[in-house]
């Protein structure tokens, strides 16, 4: 019977069954199917291989494939769990799961920590914080004097580094976020609750039937 399916759907490398991904994330099966529609669009935007390359990620975020950005690089690297230079479908869904409104807050806090731990030492260090502030200023064309930058970084660091050992660990980070919950506001994407409306997955649904 295998030869009957001349229109068998082509699955990209890294494709995982929606039921498996739904079991591991806050998404329902139909939401994962809708995410696959979005994923196909993003992953074929420049290189038609069904994998999200960094240029495609930058294009989706900034409408510009060449716009480098420290924070977008960090997000890409965290999504690219296998570290093979592309975001596969399973990686895309699991990582976006953290941004779901129903995802545990602890996961959002942990993700933000890893994002800001630029050199992956297990701590956010003062130099990293300063580097991120400078990157933000550069990105937004804001100009601040060196003194003001130092003051902002120093004050924040003193507030967060309660143990005073010159680095922010995960415990200190959790405590700091609990005092400033707005810090993880961008770890929640309300869009993810309406993803099935934005990307209906009729095609995927019929493909599932076909393969049964």
């Amino acid at each position: 019977m295998g030869c009957a399916s001349s229109k068998r759907s082509k699955r990209t490398p890294g494709y995982e069954e929606p039921t498996v991904l739904a079991a591991e994330t806050p998404f329902t099966v139909s939401e994962v199917e809708a995410l696959y529609e979005l994923y196909k669009k993003l992953s074929n935007a420049i290189i038609a291989d069904g994998l999200i390359h960094k240029e495609e990620f930058q294009l989706a975020l900034f409408r510009n494939r060449n716009r480098r950005n420290l924070f977008a690089d960090r997000i890409f690297d965290l999504f690219d769990v296998k570290r093979n230079g592309v975001i596969e479908f399973g990686e895309f869904v699991r990582s976006l799961g953290v941004f779901h409104p129903n995802a545990p807050v602890a996961d959002k806090i942990a993700f933000a920590f890893r994002l800001y731990d630029l050199r992956q030492t297990g701590f956010i260090e003062r130099e990293e914080l300063k580097e991120m502030v400078l990157a933000l200023l550069h990105e937004s064309d804001l100009v601040l004097s060196e003194d003001v930058v130092e003051t902002i970084v120093d004050k924040t660091f003193t507030d967060a580094d309660t143990k005073g050992d010159g680095k922010i660990d995960t415990e200190e980070w959790k405590e700091f976020v609990s005092k400033h919950p707005s810090l993880i506001k961008n770890m929640t994407l309300p869009y993810l609750k309406d993803i099935t409306l934005a990307f209906p997955s009729f095609v995927v649904a019929s493909e599932v039937e076909e393969s049964d």
Binding site: L61, N69, L129, I152, S182, L189
Partner: peptide
């Protein structure tokens, strides 16, 4: 205007690179 009392993490969390909502724009 960025006051010197601004929380540095608050500032960096406004980065466009961290705003994934643009992934969903058609």
């Amino acid at each position: 205007v960025v006051p010197a009392t601004m929380n540095a993490f608050e500032l960096i969390s406004t980065s466009q690179g961290l705003n994934l909502s643009s992934l969903f724009e058609k």
